[in-house]
């Protein structure tokens, strides 16, 4: 369990447990979860660098507005707060940098 991470609240039911791939890492998540939240729960906070100053950025507004949680999925830039987790999802963080 990563030291700094969002914490899934106990109780209730969640979508099926699935594995997604984030860069070279396998990450456990629940189907239907917001990808940005699943990344936070896995301790993955730094998603990109700002293009000008190059400072680390992560999810901020979680409602589709700020564009800070951009990642690359299937080659396309997507806001991870607008993408639901599905099994086998392949996610690349740091989308502005050479892969």
């Amino acid at each position: 369990m990563p030291e700094h991470a969002a914490v899934r609240i106990r109780g209730g039911q969640r979508g099926a447990r699935v594995t997604i791939r984030v860069d070279l890492q396998r990450v456990e998540a629940h189907e239907g979860e917001m990808l940005a939240a699943a990344l936070m729960a896995a301790g993955i906070y730094r998603l990109r660098r700002s293009p000008n100053a190059g400072t680390a950025r992560g999810a901020f507004c979680l409602m589709g507005v700020c564009q800070e949680c951009l990642v690359r999925i299937g080659g396309e830039l997507r806001q991870s707060c607008m993408v639901p987790v599905v099994a086998g999802l392949e996610v690349a963080t740091m989308p502005g940098e050479a892969q």
Partner: peptide, 8 residues
Amino acid sequence: PAGGLVLK
């Protein structure tokens, strides 16, 4: 709630 999530 997210798909599959059932909360109080």
